[in-house]
């Protein structure tokens, strides 16, 4: 899922400093699962902003809505009525949702409440880690199911580099060396010979370097 985290509340407040009424739009997709932008977080943020503004002597009217998800335009449509009389929409979706909301309401000030961080999963409740680099051409079959593109600090394809020690990355003792993990797994699988193949440079045109990407499935497009 997409992992996001809420921006400092003062930053969010500054974005809507000149607004009297705002809609806080949560998203029940990924950001609800990672506890950043679901209905609960949306209501907390609304409450906190109201308190903050009241203390400043400039009360804010803050209403909330939680879309099933904001990355499908059809789920934004139900917000139309709520959006009508607000000065701004604070989206608690990932960057995708914020943009769809902004597209739907061209004359509204739409701001993000979250920092969209990465694609990952949770290790334990409350801890999330990055697992996929969205490179556009998966190589996990060559690296024992461990992604060096995103989990190696240098995205090295022929690791581990000289900075790997005691299983940790040179960048931080809190970061596992992805290539140590790959080595251990390849060894356990009896496939260390795979590590001797020189992996050629990646085709980054399949990643964002090739320009904004689109994915199409002709057979399911509804005319």
């Amino acid at each position: 899922m997409i992992i996001a985290q809420q921006k400092p509340i003062k930053e969010i407040a500054a974005m809507i400093a000149d607004c009297k009424k705002v809609l806080l739009a949560g998203c029940q997709g990924c950001v609800a699962v990672c506890l950043a932008g679901g209905d609960k977080e949306t209501e907390i943020l609304a409450s906190a902003l109201r308190i903050m503004r009241k203390l400043e002597g400039n009360p804010l009217e803050a209403v909330t809505y939680a879309a099933t998800r904001q990355c499908d335009p059809e789920y934004i449509v139900p917000m139309d009525d709520l959006v009508k009389d607000v000065d701004a929409v604070i989206s608690l979706a990932c960057g995708v949702g914020v943009q769809y909301v902004a597209e739907r309401y061209p004359d509204k000030w739409v701001v993000p409440a979250l920092d969209t961080k990465f694609i990952g999963g949770s290790t334990v409740h409350g801890v999330w880690e990055e697992k996929c680099g969205l490179c556009g051409e998966c190589i996990l079959h060559r690296t024992g199911g461990i992604c060096p593109i995103i989990r190696c600090s240098k995205s090295i394809l022929n690791g581990p580099c000289g900075g790997s020690q005691y299983g940790k990355c040179e960048v931080s003792k809190d970061v596992d060396c992805a290539w140590q993990l790959i080595y251990d797994r390849m060894k356990a699988l009896g496939r260390l010979d795979k590590m001797m193949e020189i992996q050629m440079p990646k085709d980054w045109s399949k990643s964002r370097d090739g320009g904004p990407r689109r994915a199409v499935r002709e057979d399911v497009i509804i005319e």
């Binding site: 500054a14 400093a17 000149d18 308190i51 503004r53 009241k54 203390l55 400043e56 002597g57 400039n58």
Partner: peptide, 20 residues
């Protein structure tokens, strides 16, 4: 609680509201 003061503001210093 400053939220309960009739003016709403903490000390009446910002009646015009925050402008940042």
């Amino acid at each position: 609680s400053p939220l309960n003061s009739p003016a709403g503001g903490c000390c009446g210093c910002s009646k015009e509201g925050a402008t940042n």
